[in-house]
Design a binder for these strands. Structure first.
Lengths: 325, 325
DNA sequence: TTGAAAGCGCTAACAG
DNA sequence: CTGTTAGCGCTTTCAA
């Protein structure tokens, strides 16, 4: 492999100094137009590509935003990624995405990688794990998305979250309006999310004058390995006529179980939306998160903080929208 | 924001030279164990994080693989990403993913970004567009995945592809075995893929002794905007009793149209698999690509080429598997 | 076992 | 308008 072309090669070829090459290639107005064009042509012909690492090291900053995602196979997060990429690109930043598959150790490595790559800031969609964010991040600007940072430090960081309480309340209310008298919930394993969604669930029941019943409030494992059994528990044993899955991975597991059950009609609800819910044999109500807006808000806030590190930490709550498929 | 901690700060604190710090932090055997441990502790306490850019620039190489993806919302590609990330991590590489949304200009920027970041190699899942890969890539190692590079240069690069001909043939044969007498195809807009899948389709028909009918071989636009209309055309006007969608985005558009049509029973087939096909009201046959293997093959080959740049360009064909949901 | 010094590719004063 | 020079943070000879 022939050695990489550097600015020095271009300088030699053009018969000017490296500084002039640098200026020309960065469209500095202080280089004569003729020279600039000549240099740009030479650079092109030589197949020169600037070394961004060298540049970053010299100017002491990068335009990279790190993004930590817990599950890249989850539709919700791919939409988040896309929204973040779009917003970042618009602001002149590139994005370093790392998927952790919900594993804490991979989250730690991901964060390390981002710090080593000198990310200007990070967007974290993970948490819950024992990661010591404060220690790892130091003063790297960070925004938490979708999931809260651990309780102790939650208010030290910016957060972009959906209004879980309201979204769940509206969702359950919709199930009740559609006729459900006894709505069970399979809650999320993510703690803060679960707490909020449970609260919304309770509020809807209270407003409707329906009793709470702990027997029909269950929690999924992170890998959803217990969801099939819980589905049977709620819909068969507990005779629920409504079922709420607290996120789309839980709903997926529920749907896989349903055909075994041979049930009378009941109401189905899911936090998070999926396009293919349209194809299900029975109606389903969802709380659809404003994903594009979440991504944009997170990026905008992160960039604001990069430029102005001592902004006060803030929480952004965005409203989910109820959809019936 | 307090200045970043560098190796120099650690050196000052430890009272040794920067060189020793560097050695200690890289677990060099030639530094005394006691010193090493002392230094590592100090680095930790100071919150030191090595600057990977500086390191890369010094050692003249990175451990970054660039990955260009045309559509991150497509389930197929997210699985590819995951497989690539896994294989790369195992080999000690990190991954820079850029989504192009099927836009050629974004592909060009993506490639530029990767070159600027000094990616050790790139995996490209795109092509078709006018991108001048040869010129842009120079001698950066590259592997094309899922889609061929443009015809002129196809044989200059490594390719990891599914066996489209065989997969489609098996798929259509399955539809015929299940009773279809007249199978229409809505083909892909990606040219090489389309050609191969059409060939497999023809082979299956020939083997079954069924005639080809150009009237029921149609092609989707890249954005699938014409698929709804084609679905009606084939299933209603042309009275097909079998329909093959040449990829999962096409199938998605077909499924959205079906409820409007009120059809007699027919056979449905799709290249690419989706988990949620299980939930469809009618059976569906798919050719499932060996995604994990595709990702691993691509990464392994790319790394092999990075280490040994003058390997001959090779084509890897992996078999798809027929699944009935 | 450790230190001094050079240099990776680039940009930004400062001079001219 | 252009060149000289220094230095970003790191690793790696070469010497001690």
């Amino acid at each position: 492999m022939s050695r990489k072309i550097t600015i020095k090669d271009v300088a030699a070829e053009a018969g000017v100094s490296e500084a002039t090459i640098s200026r020309a290639l960065n469209d500095s107005p202080q280089v004569k137009k003729a020279t600039r064009q000549r240099i740009q042509k030479i650079a092109q012909d030589l197949g020169y590509h600037p070394n961004g690492l060298a540049r970053s090291i010299r100017v002491q900053k990068t335009n990279t935003l790190g993004v930590i995602i817990p599950d890249i196979l989850n539709n919700f997060f791919t939409h988040i990624i896309r929204a973040i990429e779009d917003a970042a690109a618009q602001a002149g930043y590139d994005v370093l995405i790392v998927n952790t598959d919900e594993q804490d150790d991979r989250e730690v490595s991901a964060l390390n990688l981002m710090l080593e790559k000198q990310a200007a800031g990070v967007i974290i969609t993970s948490a819950g794990g024992p990661t010591n964010y404060a220690a790892q991040l130091g003063n790297t600007p960070a925004v938490f998305v979708d999931r809260m940072p651990p309780a102790g430090i939650a208010t030290q960081y910016d957060r972009v979250l959906v209004d879980n309480v309201r979204g769940t309340q509206d969702l359950v209310t919709q199930l009740i309006d559609r006729g459900a008298q006894r709505v069970g919930i399979i809650n999320s394993a993510v703690s803060m999310t679960a707490t909020e969604r449970l609260k919304g669930y309770h509020r809807a029941l209270s407003v409707a004058g329906q009793p709470h019943d702990p027997a029909i409030e269950v929690t999924a494992r992170t890998d959803n390995s217990n969801v099939a059994q819980m589905t049977r528990q709620l819909l068969v044993n507990q005779r629920c006529d409504g079922l709420l899955a607290a996120d789309n991975t839980i709903m997926d597991a529920v749907l896989h179980k349903l055909p075994d059950l041979d049930l009378p009609p009941f109401q189905l609800g899911s936090f998070d939306d999926q396009d293919w819910f349209d194809f299900l044999p029975q109606p389903i109500v969802t709380a659809k998160q404003p994903i594009a807006q979440i991504g944009k808000t997170a990026v905008d806030r992160l960039i604001a903080r990069i430029n102005q590190p001592d902004l006060p930490a803030e929480e952004f709550r965005l409203a989910a929208k109820i959809i019936t498929h």
